[in-house]
């Protein structure tokens, strides 16, 4: 047993020669006097799924906002696929391949499912500023969007406005839109919150089917989902990474037991064994 503690917040390099897609160091977010994210570091190799867990208010969403460039940082460095993107704005980071979803679904809710995903495809493969239609080019974009929508299993809701979809379906649109952006690293913020058991299962299968050329960080409260999907886990508490490592290492880390259950209740199992 060799738990990785806060003094060594980096995730151990996973597969032998897998190149790193994301390297974060010393990332800090402050809201006035409150330090919501306190010098967080993390590394993510290609093809890996990393889970970020921790109590409410730990700073998980703030960390994502800072990574995505939507939140000003008080320090830190972000390197995406060997390219320093710390100075990039939000749109530039997404363009470079770091794409996030929101904890509270944020889509183009008045537009159809197809149009939502078209926005993403148009940005990556089309000409989002061309002020006239062009039959062949536009059809190509529509086809690519439909492909992405089929992949998440929403082909029958193509023309439904997003505002008419269920919560789970909206999450599927989020994934389709994210995939349409050709991301290198995806940040999922509590993707299964509010989903039914069936929807959660479907979603986990979807995440497992993502191409292994990308990597993902998933904020998730459902520990079944965490243990099903994650190759590695970091635990965030009060803005700090208090543990990081393989699922087994994190599960047995006393600091995690402390943060999650408080002292004196260590006899209860924190994580149930999950049969795969």
């Amino acid at each position: 047993m060799n738990p990785v503690t806060a003094t060594d917040p980096s995730v151990p390099a996973p597969a032998a020669s897998a190149p790193l897609l994301l390297e974060v160091e010393g990332l800090t977010v402050r809201y006035g006097a409150l330090t919501a994210v306190d010098s967080v570091g993390m590394r993510l190799a290609v093809g890996r799924r990393h889970a970020l867990i921790g109590p409410n208010g730990a700073g998980k969403s703030s960390l994502f906002a800072a990574l995505a460039g939507a939140q000003r940082t008080a320090g830190g460095q972000i390197v995406l696929d060997g390219q320093e993107i710390t100075g990039h704005d939000e749109a530039q980071r997404a363009k470079a391949g770091l794409v996030r979803t929101y904890q509270h679904s944020n889509l183009f809710s008045g537009l159809s499912v197809l149009d939502n995903v078209r926005v993403g495809v148009e940005r990556t493969e089309g000409q989002p500023l061309r002020p006239w239609p062009r039959r062949r080019a536009d059809r190509r974009i529509v086809e690519a969007a439909i492909e992405s929508i089929e992949r998440v299993g929403l082909a029958d809701r193509l023309n439904a406005p997003v505002s008419a979809l269920s919560h789970g379906e909206r999450r599927q649109v989020e994934v389709a839109l994210v995939l349409a952006c050709h991301p290198k690293v995806v940040l999922f913020d509590e993707p299964t919150a509010g989903m039914s058991a069936a929807e959660t299962h479907h979603f986990a299968a979807l995440i497992e089917s993502l191409p292994d050329t990308m990597a993902a960080i998933i904020i998730e409260h459902d520990l079944d989902v965490v243990f099903r999907l994650a190759h590695s886990i970091s635990v965030l508490a009060a803005g700090k990474v208090i543990a990081s490592g393989t699922p087994a290492q994190v599960r047995d880390d006393p600091a995690v037991q402390e943060a999650y259950l408080g002292s004196g209740r260590g006899d209860e199992p924190l994580f149930e064994e999950v049969s795969r």
């Binding site: 939507a70 996030r100 183009f108 537009l111 926005v119 940005r123 990556t124």
Partner: peptide
Amino acid sequence: RAVRESPTRLRAVGQS
């Protein structure tokens, strides 16, 4: 129309 519906989301997609 995307700007109208959600400017933050459009930026998150990578469009200024």
